[in-house]
Protein backbone atom coordinates (compact mmCIF):
# COMPACT_ATOMS: atom_id res chain seq x y z
CA UNK A 1 0.00 0.00 0.00
CA UNK A 2 2.95 2.35 0.51
CA UNK A 3 4.98 1.31 -2.52
CA UNK A 4 2.71 2.64 -5.24
CA UNK A 5 2.82 1.67 -8.87
CA UNK A 6 3.52 3.70 -12.03
CA UNK A 7 0.73 4.15 -14.54
CA UNK A 8 -0.12 6.32 -17.53
CA UNK A 9 -3.22 8.56 -17.61
CA UNK A 10 -5.23 7.59 -20.69
CA UNK A 11 -8.52 9.44 -20.21
CA UNK A 12 -10.17 12.11 -18.07
CA UNK A 13 -13.44 10.67 -16.69
CA UNK A 14 -14.78 13.57 -14.63
CA UNK A 15 -12.91 16.87 -14.68
CA UNK A 16 -14.97 18.37 -11.83
CA UNK A 17 -14.33 15.44 -9.47
CA UNK A 18 -10.77 15.10 -10.83
CA UNK A 19 -11.19 11.46 -11.79
CA UNK A 20 -9.18 9.88 -14.59
CA UNK A 21 -8.50 6.43 -16.00
CA UNK A 22 -4.96 5.16 -15.59
CA UNK A 23 -3.38 2.25 -17.43
CA UNK A 24 -1.23 0.25 -15.00
CA UNK A 25 0.59 -2.54 -16.87
CA UNK A 26 -2.49 -3.14 -19.01
CA UNK A 27 -4.96 -2.92 -16.12
CA UNK A 28 -7.25 0.10 -16.23
CA UNK A 29 -8.52 1.73 -13.09
CA UNK A 30 -10.12 5.01 -12.16
CA UNK A 31 -7.95 7.20 -9.94
CA UNK A 32 -8.23 10.60 -8.32
CA UNK A 33 -5.79 13.13 -9.80
CA UNK A 34 -6.37 16.07 -7.40
CA UNK A 35 -2.78 15.90 -6.12
CA UNK A 36 -1.08 16.24 -9.50
CA UNK A 37 -2.99 19.17 -10.97
CA UNK A 38 -2.46 22.87 -10.40
CA UNK A 39 -2.82 26.10 -12.37
CA UNK A 40 0.23 25.32 -14.47
CA UNK A 41 -0.85 21.76 -15.12
CA UNK A 42 -4.66 21.66 -15.40
CA UNK A 43 -6.77 18.52 -15.66
CA UNK A 44 -7.00 18.90 -19.45
CA UNK A 45 -3.23 18.49 -19.85
CA UNK A 46 -2.94 15.27 -17.81
CA UNK A 47 -3.56 12.68 -20.54
CA UNK A 48 -0.26 10.96 -21.31
CA UNK A 49 1.27 11.79 -17.89
CA UNK A 50 3.16 9.03 -16.14
CA UNK A 51 2.10 9.07 -12.50
CA UNK A 52 2.77 7.11 -9.35
CA UNK A 53 -0.50 5.66 -8.07
CA UNK A 54 -1.04 4.99 -4.36
CA UNK A 55 -4.32 3.47 -3.10
CA UNK A 56 -6.33 4.94 -5.95
CA UNK A 57 -4.73 8.39 -6.04
CA UNK A 58 -2.13 9.73 -8.45
CA UNK A 59 0.34 11.16 -5.95
CA UNK A 60 3.22 12.32 -8.14
CA UNK A 61 3.98 12.98 -11.79
CA UNK A 62 7.12 11.06 -12.65
CA UNK A 63 9.62 13.63 -13.84
CA UNK A 64 11.30 12.19 -16.94
CA UNK A 65 14.08 14.78 -16.97
CA UNK A 66 14.98 13.97 -13.35
CA UNK A 67 14.87 10.23 -14.06
CA UNK A 68 17.20 10.73 -17.04
CA UNK A 69 19.52 12.86 -14.91
CA UNK A 70 19.79 10.19 -12.17
CA UNK A 71 20.54 7.52 -14.78
CA UNK A 72 23.11 9.81 -16.42
CA UNK A 73 24.94 10.29 -13.09
CA UNK A 74 24.99 6.51 -12.66
CA UNK A 75 26.39 6.00 -16.15
CA UNK A 76 29.06 8.65 -15.69
CA UNK A 77 30.07 7.06 -12.41
CA UNK A 78 30.64 3.79 -14.30
CA UNK A 79 32.54 5.49 -17.12
CA UNK A 80 34.82 7.30 -14.68
CA UNK A 81 35.52 4.04 -12.87
CA UNK A 82 36.28 2.23 -16.14
CA UNK A 83 38.61 5.07 -17.16
CA UNK A 84 40.48 4.96 -13.84
CA UNK A 85 40.77 1.20 -13.99
CA UNK A 86 42.19 1.43 -17.54
CA UNK A 87 44.77 3.98 -16.38
CA UNK A 88 45.82 1.79 -13.44
CA UNK A 89 45.86 -1.35 -15.58
CA UNK A 90 48.16 0.20 -18.20
CA UNK A 91 50.37 1.58 -15.48
CA UNK A 92 50.66 -1.88 -13.95
CA UNK A 93 51.52 -3.37 -17.34
CA UNK A 94 54.20 -0.76 -17.81
CA UNK A 95 55.48 -1.43 -14.30
CA UNK A 96 55.17 2.16 -13.15
CA UNK A 97 52.85 4.71 -11.61
CA UNK A 98 49.95 6.15 -13.57
CA UNK A 99 51.19 9.09 -15.59
Amino acid sequence: MCLGIPGCIVMIDDAAKMLATVDISGVRRQVNIACIVDEEHPVSSCVGDWVLVHVGFAMSRIDEAEAAETLKILTELGEARAELEAIHLSAAHLGGQPA
Binding site: C35, I36, D38, M59, S60, D63, E66, E69, T70
Partner: peptide, 18 residues
Protein backbone atom coordinates in the same frame (compact mmCIF):
# COMPACT_ATOMS: atom_id res chain seq x y z
CA UNK B 1 17.28 13.77 -2.54
CA UNK B 2 18.19 10.78 -4.71
CA UNK B 3 14.56 10.23 -5.78
CA UNK B 4 14.00 13.54 -7.54
CA UNK B 5 12.00 11.93 -10.35
CA UNK B 6 9.15 11.44 -7.87
CA UNK B 7 9.98 13.65 -4.87
CA UNK B 8 9.90 17.42 -5.41
CA UNK B 9 11.97 19.14 -2.70
CA UNK B 10 8.92 21.13 -1.61
CA UNK B 11 6.56 18.11 -1.46
CA UNK B 12 3.02 18.06 -2.84
CA UNK B 13 1.04 21.24 -2.09
CA UNK B 14 -2.42 19.82 -2.90
CA UNK B 15 -1.84 16.76 -0.70
CA UNK B 16 -0.49 18.84 2.18
CA UNK B 17 -3.46 21.19 1.91
CA UNK B 18 -5.93 18.29 2.21
Amino acid sequence: NQYARVVPDQGNAAALDA
